[in-house]
Design a binder for these strands. Structure first.
Length: 441
RNA sequence: CGGAGCAUAGCGCAGCCUGGUAGCGCAUCUGCUUUGGGAGCAGAGGGUCGCAGGUUCGAAUCCUGCUGCUCCGACCA
């Protein structure tokens, strides 16, 4: 993409409402624009990151055996009356009347709808296990939205719902998601720690929050320091192997880790002092096993091998991609701007033409742009006629992981400069070697 | 939902108290000079001063109502 043809509204000054660093940087780098309290438009740069985050989530959900569908944001109130949550949910639920005075709501979650769908079609244990997920906009009318897309009213959520014949099957389903989540966050360059959690209004008896550590995190968390050194499960983990997955689960839950609500001072004190970590955390995922809480009111049953009818055992599993984007910035930035992990960077490589209009520099940039694009990289080519300093500042602000600086000084020696955003390391390199060099990482 | 505040150009702000032709910085456009870490000079464009009433010869400014937004607290992917 040529920057001169792109839509990247960079702000030099920060809008006053932005309190936390991720909100400030998302506004400054032209990723989002606020349209109302807690409601945001995703501008092209932000949309690119959000899309990449969703794709990683999607790949790992699919790998674990979950199946994607798409349910609508508006739902009929009657569906929620079946579970009793239409009255329970309170003012967080956005309620609407259509032209026929029918009660409609903008979905804050989808347990009811997915249970209705499964109830309609799934009649036999042979269709199980089943895990259906979608990535869709949710609305929760928060008392006080804040911190940009971190706590917005409209937000994107990946929500998965598992259906099994019995508690043992549901436990396997829970562990599949547990492992998929470990992999998902690791691929985004995040160290997410699973912590014992409250089940809250969703109900149930087994639940974990996935927390990443960041000094600006909302909740206080306590855990064993060894979590930071643990290796996530590999890509070829066997999701059919119930015992193997339970082993991974046991390993990742063997050490102490809890949010402040579930904190056990005595257990924490038992950890050797050097390994005790008390920090701030950001919740980026939450998984629940809740048994027959919804299948019972909905009458969602299948016939088992014994010929009898069995209520489905369910779990639900959420990740907020829009919040995740903000969380990644909280966890990875410096004074100059965002530092994106390669996997989610809006563009992997930036080409900075330090002297637009100089024919040799233009030609070198054009050639590099063509070569990198052909090699499959997402490239942002800054071909504007801004000064070099402006281009450096822009590339660092929007967090391009690799930056190729092309100017007359370097080209005089047959070189361009390759800069790594994360540590500022630079190396002089021949333009023809850039593609090969990036493969090394 | 309790408490506090704000609303004037894309962004940040002044002007309001004491009514009298709507301003500053950044950004944008034009020209010249610059050109490897957010350039300089000169010029230009851009506003129903959140909305609706009222007071007044005259309202950004005073009064009333409304709307939107932000911050602090309790709740939340």
């Amino acid at each position: 993409m040529r920057l001169s043809r792109y839509f990247l509204p960079i702000l030099r000054e920060v809008p006053k409402e932005a309190e936390i660093v991720s909100h400030r940087l998302m506004l400054r780098s032209g990723m989002i624009r606020q349209e109302a309290a807690g409601i945001y438009a995703w501008l092209p740069l932000g949309h690119r990151v959000l899309t990449k985050v969703c794709n990683i989530i999607r790949e790992e959900q699919n790998r674990s055996g979950a199946v994607e569908l798409l349910m609508p944001p508006p739902q009929q109130a009657d569906l929620w009356r079946e579970s009793g949550r239409y009255d329970d949910y309170g003012k967080e639920m956005l309620r609407i009347k259509d032209r026929h005075e029918r009660d409609i709501l903008y979905g804050p979650t989808n347990e009811e709808m997915i249970t209705e769908i499964v109830r309609a079609y799934v009649k036999s244990y042979k269709a199980l296990p089943l895990n259906l997920y979608h990535i869709q906009w949710k609305f929760r009318d928060e008392l006080r939205p804040r911190f940009g897309v971190y706590r917005s009213r409209e937000f994107l959520m990946k929500d998965a719902y598992s259906f099994d014949l019995d508690a043992a099957g549901a436990r396997h389903a829970y562990n599949r998601m547990f492992v998929a989540y470990l992999r998902t966050f690791a691929r985004m360059g995040l160290k997410a720690i699973p912590m014992v959690a409250d089940t809250g209004p969703i109900g149930g008896n087994l639940s974990h929050e996935f927390i990443i550590l960041a000094s600006t995190g909302e909740s206080e968390v306590f855990c064993h320091g060894d979590y930071l050194g643990m290796t996530p499960p590999p890509a070829d983990v066997n999701f059919e192997d119930a015992a193997g997955l339970q082993g991974v689960f046991d390993q990742w839950t063997s050490l102490y880790a809890a949010t402040s609500e579930k904190h056990d001072q005595a257990a924490f004190a038992a950890i050797p002092e050097a390994s005790r970590m008390a920090a701030r955390g950001i919740e980026v995922g939450h998984i629940f096993y809740f048994g027959t809480k919804y299948s019972e009111p909905f009458g969602a049953k299948v016939q088992g091998p014994d010929g009898a009818e069995h209520l489905l055992h369910m779990g639900s599993y959420g990740i907020g991609p829009s919040r995740l984007v903000a969380a990644m910035i909280e966890a990875s930035h410096d004074e100059a701007g965002i530092i994106w992990p390669d996997a989610v960077a809006p563009f992997q490589v930036g080409i900075l033409n330090l002297k637009s209009g100089d024919s040799a520099t233009d030609a070198a940039c054009d050639a590099l742009y063509a070569a990198l694009t052909k090699a499959g990289y997402d490239v942002l080519y800054d071909d504007t006629d801004e000064r070099a300093g402006v281009k450096f500042a822009t590339a660092d602000l929007i967090g391009l992981p690799w930056q190729v600086l092309v100017g007359p000084k370097g080209l005089a020696g047959g070189k361009v400069e390759l800069k790594r955003r994360i540590d500022g390391a630079r190396e002089l390199i021949a333009p023809a070697d850039v593609v090969e060099r990036l493969k090394v990482g």
